[in-house]
Design a binder for these strands. Sequence first.
DNA 1: GTGAAAGCGCTAACAT
DNA 2: ATGTTAGCGCTTTCAC
Lengths: 347, 347
Amino acid sequence: MEKETTIYDIAKVLGLSASTVSRALKGNPVINARTRAKVEECAQTMGYRSNAFASNLRTRRTNTIGVIVPRLDSSFLSACLAGMEEVASSEGYNLIISQSHESAKKEAQNALTMFNSRVDGVIASLTVENSDLSYFNRFRKSNVPVVFFDRIPSQTDSICFSIDNEKASYEATKHLINQGCRRLIHVTIKSHLDVYNQRIAGFLKAVETLPECIGNVIYVDSLSLEGGNLAAKKIIENNNIPDGVFVANDMAAVGCMTTLKEHGYKFPDDIAMVGFNNDPVATIISPALTTINYPGREAGMLAAKKLINLLNGEKNAENTRNEILNANLVIRNSSLKKKITHKISIH
Amino acid sequence: MEKETTIYDIAKVLGLSASTVSRALKGNPVINARTRAKVEECAQTMGYRSNAFASNLRTRRTNTIGVIVPRLDSSFLSACLAGMEEVASSEGYNLIISQSHESAKKEAQNALTMFNSRVDGVIASLTVENSDLSYFNRFRKSNVPVVFFDRIPSQTDSICFSIDNEKASYEATKHLINQGCRRLIHVTIKSHLDVYNQRIAGFLKAVETLPECIGNVIYVDSLSLEGGNLAAKKIIENNNIPDGVFVANDMAAVGCMTTLKEHGYKFPDDIAMVGFNNDPVATIISPALTTINYPGREAGMLAAKKLINLLNGEKNAENTRNEILNANLVIRNSSLKKKITHKISIH
DNA sequence: GTGAAAGCGCTAACAT
DNA sequence: ATGTTAGCGCTTTCAC
């Protein structure tokens, strides 16, 4: 174990005081430029590295951001994390990441851990299960800013942002209707989360624009491949096959498509399909999945930026509270009936 | 901002000394059980939380593990991270995660950042680009253990583990041969990394088991969807269509399949395909992709366990140096020619 | 522009 | 079983 160089060692070598060294190292303008240069050089050659703990102990800041997400192994969330990491590291912040596994209890635990490790701020996306967010109050009381993204609480004065889920969902459903679909199904999850409820709202709103349209909502336990399989089974059991299905995420959409394909249904001819997120799998499934592009990396970057702005005391961050991220429909073959309809009409 | 409770506050209330409180809170057995109970209760009611910085400053430990990975947005790596996080958090460690984006320079930077934030230990998976690992020496000098996983350095006395890539690759290739393939191609990336070189070795070894087998290696710049597309284009340009392709990861395999399918080749009839990793996309592509199952979550858990063992000074961890993780072939329809061969032979 | 001194909250000898 | 004391390395008044 090598002995660590401290500012006192530097001070001794240079015949200065520790405070001068500290100031020089921080780039404090009050220090003579030549002194600073000497200090910096000496620090360099002595292999000095600042001890964050001593510093944190004094300043009561940790330069650490706590991140609480439902899971790490989803392509949307890992894209978000990648974005956060980029911004955070470029601003000199570390990320502490923890996953709630969709359990409200684990989420509370994680929040406590973060609190106890005195993160400067928190970025969170809620669990499906959740409803009581009291464990976030601690942060507010201690002036630790919290930014919610994607799965945001419905009522809060915290900083939140997400996409306009209702609009995106409306657009997706409207697209199905424009493709000629009339018997529509929306597959989603039962939850307190606005994210999903707004998608339901958008779906129903679009259905209502045309009297001959019928819209039903099917609930599954999880928006996963398996959840999608299950939804397909429910659809088949109900014996009321839709001509258009809009699923609240791509993985579930793909699961749903796969099972329906196994039962002989053709996409998009029999059923047109639209997903949500623009997960890489959307381009892998055949036919490629029409979906809402939800830019995860950008969302992560924005979350980190907002939080860091708050940490830097930029109050104008308040103005951007509840900002809306852009999300647009990406049309692929899973929903494109038009060409077929066209051929038929020529017929 | 509420005032934080310290052990001194508790000590004062209880008429004890700070050291007794500290010991009680740490569960030091030397403390009277009743005293400990009182201290714990008081800490609870006063909302005490330990200040990790003061503690770290004294103990020179951070309870933090640094993780350096090439990227976060890959399903294999996010599974690894999820596994690490599980183990680490259950053992009271935090994770600091950073991504190198396959750049050796960024990797060095990240290592420095981790070093400066005084992580207790490091878990790393190397970049493709890398070759000089001197920036990991710092850790060794300071007795900070480093565990490498998956993309491990070829020569090192560090703790490493991975799967037996040569064996897995041999098995995958042998499977193609058993399916009747004779003109084989392996798609991979040029790199200093054993991971990929051993896969090449296993491929060639399997090809050599049968004189009439021809094996060629095609290199791409990245083992991504796009890399796979590119490989397919190269294959078509060469105008020497193989009957079996083994790709060094699933994403690239899927990209390769997609492009080849677009050019009219049928899987597995014209070409049998095998990938590597057992990425979720393997079950989504049609036909489903035969692949080597690489258990990411387990790998992550093992990495974290090994590191924590080292941190706890368990020297028997030395014995498990360079341990091999199990990986097995998962056979799906992309490579199953047998049934067809069978039908023909009945004919 | 620089220095002296105190203290952030905790832990670990050492003493009792 | 508990208390005393010193110090981890840094920042920050306050003084000059």
